[in-house]
Design a protein around this nucleic acid. Structure first.
Lengths: 252, 252
DNA sequence: ACGATACATGCAGAAACGTGCAAGAACGCG
DNA sequence: CGCGTTCTTGCACGTTTCTGCATGTATCGT
């Protein structure tokens, strides 16, 4: 049993039965109570649950299943998402990419935010159903299984018909020389099309992406407004990017 | 064993069992754990999986809402969905509506079914990500919060561009006189547009819908091929509908 | 107040990790 | 065909991380 898997299991159980008894779950998973306690302590530190004597309770009833859905979102991504969500102005139009970071950003938006969100990710669209005042425009097209977003000619065409104030893009790799890259050519084209329809474009990249490069170039540095990352300002790649005139927003 | 082959095997395993344990897969494939780790590192860099201590977990949002997939579908709906899924021929094109019954149908499709699915429901689209051989076309447009499907002019227009062999529609009410109805005018229009693009149209209605009517008419009886329901053949509404020449498929 | 249970902390063995390195295969080129 | 280059792969090493146990402390129920 993987540690991360155990963590997910705990959150899942928390969402489903509303509580966790350390002793029981230890017996159920065949691990020591100490490990359970350790996990619960960490989850509580991240605000995903409320630690109580004997086990844990959901952080708050409202976020019970919210937490479970965030379970696979690592810490860095969540911080990046929080900063990215802060960039969105009420009343503005936002283009939101697919991918886990963009999804986390959607969930990090204030629940009653009044704005228009344009996305090619059905997952993001579904997540935004819970934001009653947000108008969601879904760009149709062929669904790419790999990343669960629409891509291809039809999707790019649909993107041409919209325009926005702000575009938040996720990428697979951020490298000083290679620039912003992703693993699929269609995806790269779609991201380019999205960025082209927005006045400003920020790239979201948690630290594990920093310094890596994938096969397909999305955009050169000149065409983005800024980078949101949780990698420290001292990180060599961050410094290199900054020296190229890219605004770097710290999600520390 | 080729490197690319190994990579595929890892992704396949990830999709199938939801996790990878580096040690196990190394033993299974007869290669060193180092190679497995290297592969996982690269896959993670491309965003294809999430690296965790001891192995890897899926990064795909599709598998992330595993919990949602486990949510309970009432028995009647499930039976209706099973019968509806049986109507889909391999190699054909299918239009699938939104709503819980349609979603259950999507999940009831054989996992390796080779077909094209056209839908205006992002939820259905996401559910179908797990069907590797199904091509999913998502109809874009404005998202209706209430039912989480795209509706409106843009969505209807997108629907005009497709055509299919079979259309499976959910409705809110099935009544002998009022016909097939739903609670929103835009939704009704969208459903009409979908049915118009398909050679055959079946309506899915679990028994609690039978005999009720909502405000907006979707289609008259003449324009549908059949009705799939779990209400018994002796049910007065079912008998009335049958007498109007509608084929009724029993999901008992 | 007291026993029982849960807890945090420190510790040690074990497992997993990243890196450097060298042997070997695949490849391109002369 | 031979040679050098590049890429891959497995091994060795030192490092980090995890996990269960032991200890002493805090909290709960009675």
């Amino acid at each position: 049993m993987l540690a991360a898997e155990r963590r997910d299991h705990l959150l899942d159980m928390l969402a489903r039965q509303g509580k966790i008894v350390a002793k029981d779950v230890a017996a159920e998973l065949g691990i020591s109570e100490d490990s359970v306690r350790r996990d619960l302590r960490e989850l509580a530190a991240e605000g995903l649950c409320q630690r109580v004597y004997g086990g844990a309770l959901p952080a708050s009833p409202a976020v019970a299943d919210y937490a479970a859905r965030q379970s696979v979102t690592p810490d860095g991504k969540r911080r990046v998402a929080a900063v990215a969500a802060g960039l969105v102005r009420p009343g503005s139009a936002l283009i939101l990419d697919g991918g886990t970071t963009a999804l986390a950003t959607a969930r990090a938006l204030p629940p009653d935010l009044d704005c228009t969100v344009i996305t090619h990710s059905p997952t993001v669209a579904v997540a935004l159903v819970e934001h009653p005042r947000a108008e969601v425009i879904l760009l149709g097209g062929r669904l790419f299984k790999h990343s669960a977003v629409t891509c291809g000619a039809a999707a790019v065409e649909a993107a041409q018909a919209v325009s926005a104030d702000l575009c938040l893009l996720g990428v697979a790799g951020v490298h000083p020389d290679a620039g912003l890259t992703t693993g699929d050519a269609e995806e790269a084209a779609m991201k380019r099309a999205l960025a082209a329809r927005s006045a400003e474009t920020y790239v979201l990249a948690s630290s594990e992406k920093i310094g890596t490069a994938s096969r397909f170039r999305v955009l050169p540095w000149e065409e983005i407004t800024g980078l949101v990352t949780d990698a420290g300002p001292g990180h060599p790649v961050v410094r290199a990017v900054t020296s190229r005139g890219v605004q770097v927003l710290q999600a520390g």
